[in-house]
Design a protein around this nucleic acid. Structure first.
Ligand SMILES: Nc1ncnc2c1ncn2[C@@H]1O[C@H](COP(=O)(O)OP(=O)(O)OP(=O)(O)O)[C@@H](O)[C@H]1O
Length: 744
DNA sequence: TTCCCTGCCGTTTTT
DNA sequence: CGGCAGGGAA
């Protein structure tokens, strides 16, 4: 146990927030000012000094990972296990929903539908209604349904024909969910609220229980979440919320920054505390971030200062291609680690879109830099994992027709689309779920005897396993099940090499289940499925792992790293092309950039490229407007900046400047390479001449004796100090020019 | 019914 | 470029 030193660990404002007594409290403060620390210490203080039972506390974090971290910190401080509820809005409301379900006529074994399940369901409903299930239509219906649930504060009147269509589909969608005893992500939040509205006694039960509420990242709560906080605090009135309006980056999914800005209206007599000292970043980083966010008009201004002396300038790098960007970042990281200046886990690379990770990953792999990718395709969203999970979901919840339909022919049983339609029609006729209809043994009209036989076998199989599920450890059961249906063999025979990988993921799922049983011995299959549905990639991120972290800017919220790269600082990417229509979207993009910058403790390296591979095509790119918002004197600009008429890879990778010659006019100001083209110390990446001194990441220093090829394909022969000579493909090597006197 | 091939489309961000 | 749905052939 680490005894809490209230004086040493907290500044006076933080201490005020931690020790604050009863009533609503808002800590509105900038990045890195110790808001999360306030919440953690307040929790510990309430439990340790004021002797509030953890069971009477409720703490809400943005990710499961943050929840686990907070719990661990508190336990370390007070020296004992903390059993109170600490979790995300979704995990907390799904717990409430499961608890109250039997009392309001729901089955607590309900299934949670993820985005993928939602899409499948909407798709099948569209088909039933004779609508072509285009991905656009599915997306719009999904967005509409979601908005209807999470933004009940201002219910949208259907305006466009598309919205009217969505409005017609919505009731069917919701009814179908209920019939399948399933809830989507938004339901998890909104259904408990509806239940509380209908049954004030039930609400009172919960609201009385939670004497103190603590909520992190309040700026990104949506209407339902705000409502839930309001309701749960309605008896004791002790809400402590912390957040930063400048870090609100989820408006696109319904978050409303008004929840934090109007906190004092929602919770009258709220005490507001501001924190102004930043403990995370060096001054140049903090000043750059502040200067950027100043450009937003709609914000509550904040002051932020640091007493950290010195600090490196931010670096802005420019590359010809995204490929080079990845290579250079990797080389940079590898170099610092080899020189024992950092460890891999000190670094994070952020980007706007998941698609950007590819070129970055390629670079890291080529330079043998270990990395961990957060986001993109999640483990539990993989096809093979969802296939096996569908079996488990059916064992837990027989009404889950979506899962039944999914596994009906996985692995292949000779039961195709036609047979499935017959079965679906039959079940509908009888008012049963698919599995019930199969179990009943009643003949399905239209089915071939072969198909009927196979379906019968499936029903029997599921019956056997649901028997076993009563008293056997889930992971044993699942291992046997996967073995018996031959899932791994199925993928292998169908997809070969790739199927092998799927097999590995099946094994990993079984291992995850075993791990869950170890962690939560009292947990059952339903608990596991719920946990898995609400798990995100970042939750399984292990900081201790010696690896560079790759993630989107969105995922970086709340984290911190010594050295941060922000790749792809380009128009169309950051700000994203689809968020440039109006000023408010643009401001959210700027906040995203601000969040990224403020994650860094020691160093920020920004990069942009001249052309980027998109959809397999070369697309030109120009630097982000946000870069100009960083004061010149905080920025060190380096990189391969071309000048007109020069050969080498620059010309090839830069379609809009090809054809230029030394005699062309200077490039106009709106060109891709504004301002700093002439002032930077030029260090073209792959330009070598015989006689150059170089440093290789593993072979040390040497001198170039011969150069072959050009651009990306340059090969150089190097005599190393250590006495050996090597031929090196410049593109793949971790090379660095040693200082030399070459004019610009 | 299955499997293979073609052609189309996607990229914003995610609980 | 890559994944996947849908169409056509075995
Ligand atoms: N009083 C303090 N003295 C020293 N370090 C502190 C203090 N308060 C917080 N810190 C440190 O500063 C860093 C940022 O703290 P924290 O994550 O709580 O800030 P935050 O306001 O939640 O940040 P953000 O909003 O950017 O996520 C952490 O490394 C934390 O340990």
């Amino acid at each position: 146990m680490t005894p809490i030193d209230w004086d040493k660990d907290l500044n006076p404002e933080q201490r005020e927030a931690v020790l604050f007594g009863d009533g609503p409290l808002l800590v509105l403060a900038g990045a890195g000012s110790g808001k999360t620390r306030v919440l953690t210490y307040r929790y510990a203080h309430l439990v340790y000094e004021r002797e509030v039972y953890p069971s009477r506390m409720l703490a809400v974090t943005f990710t499961n990972k943050a929840a686990a971290e907070m719990r661990a910190r508190i336990e370390k401080q007070i020296g004992e296990g903390v059993g109170g509820w600490i979790g995300t809005f979704h995990s907390i409301s799904s717990r409430i929903l499961r608890q109250v379900a039997p009392r309001v006529g729901f089955d607590p074994h309900f299934t949670i539908f993820d985005a993928d399940d939602q899409r499948s369901l909407i798709k099948s409903i569209c088909r039933d209604h004779g609508l072509d299930p285009t991905s656009e239509r599915i997306g719009r219906v999904r967005a509409y349904v979601s908005r209807l649930k999470t933004d009940r504060g201002n219910i949208p009147e259907p305006e466009s024909p598309m919205e009217e269509e969505a409005a017609r589909i919505e009731p069917v969608y919701t009814q179908t969910l209920r019939r399948m005893n399933a809830f989507d992500f938004d339901d998890l939040l909104v259904v408990p609220i509806e239940i509380f509205q209908e049954d004030p006694h039930l609400l009172e039960e919960y609201a009385s229980r939670f004497r103190y509420l603590l909520v992190d990242e309040y700026q990104d709560t949506n209407w339902v979440q705000n409502e839930l906080v309001r309701m749960l605090s309605s008896v004791h009135g002790n809400v402590a919320a912390v957040g930063d309006d400048d870090q609100s980056i989820y408006r696109w999914r319904g978050a409303d920054v008004k929840n934090i800005l109007d906190f004092e209206e929602t919770f009258p007599n709220a005490h507001v505390i501001r924190l102004e000292q930043n403990y995370r970043s060096t001054k140049p980083i903090l000043d750059a971030a502040s200067a950027v966010i100043e450009n937003n008009v709609s914000r509550r201004g904040k002051r932020l200062w640091t007493d950290k002396p010195g600090g490196d300038l931010l670096t802005l790098q420019r590359f010809f291609t995204d490929r080079e960007e990845g290579m250079s970042i990797a080389r940079d990281i590898q170099r610092r680690v080899r020189m024992n200046m950092n460890r891999f886990s000190d670094f994070a690379v952020f980007y706007r879109t998941n698609a950007q990770s590819r070129s970055l990953e390629d670079g890291l792999r080529l330079h043998a830099v270990p990395y961990r990718l957060i986001g993109g395709l999640r483990f539990y969203e993989r096809k093979e994992v969802k296939d096996l999970l569908a079996y488990l979901r059916l064992l837990a919840n027989e009404a889950d027709d979506l899962s039944f339909a999914r596994i009906l022919n996985v692995p292949a049983r000779g039961v195709g689309a036609k047979s499935r339609e017959h079965l679906v029609a039959h079940a509908k006729e009888r008012g049963q779920s698919l599995l019930e209809a199969v179990r009943s043994g009643a003949p399905v009209p239209g089915l071939t005897s072969r198909a009927a036989g196979r379906i019968g076998e499936l029903g029997a199989l599921l019956g056997r396993y649901s028997e076993r599920a009563r008293d056997e450890a889930p992971h044993d059961l699942v291992r046997d099940l996967a073995e018996e249906i031959g899932l791994v063999r199925f993928y292998e025979s169908k997809e070969g090499e790739k199927g092998l990988l799927r097999g590995e993921n099946i094994d990993e799922l079984i291992a995850a289940l075993a791990d869950f049983e170890r962690r939560k011995p009292s947990g059952n299959l339903v608990d596991f499925l719920a946990e898995v549905s609400l798990l995100t990639d970042i939750d399984s991120w292990d900081e201790g792992q010696e690896a560079v972290t790759l993630m989107t800017l969105h995922n970086s919220k709340g984290l911190e790293f010594p050295r941060v790269y922000i790749a792809g600082a380009e128009e169309g990417l950051l700000p994203h092309a689809r968020s440039m229509m109006d000023e408010s979207q643009l401001e959210e993009e700027r906040r995203l950039f601000y969040v990224g910058l403020t994650r860094a403790m020691e160093k920020v390296t920004l990069s942009h490229v001249g052309s980027r591979l998109r959809y397999g095509e070369i697309a030109p790119a120009i630097p982000s407007r946000f870069l100009k918002e960083i004061p010149e004197e905080l920025l060190e600009k380096i990189g391969a900046l071309p000048s007109a008429g020069r050969g080498g890879i620059g010309a090839a990778a830069r379609p809009y400047s090809s054809g230029r010659s030394l005699f062309d006019e200077p490039e106009p100001a709106h060109d891709a390479f504004p301002d700093y083209e002439n002032e930077s110390q030029e260090q073209p990446v792959f330009r070598f001449e015989a006689g150059d001194g170089i440093r290789h990441a593993s072979w040390g220093d040497g001198r170039v004796t011969r150069v072959e090829g050009s651009g990306m394909d340059t090969k150089i022969t190097v005599e190393f100090r250590a006495g050996f000579t090597k031929k090196i493909m410049v593109r793949y090597a971790s090379l660095e020019h040693l200082p030399r006197k070459r004019g610009r």
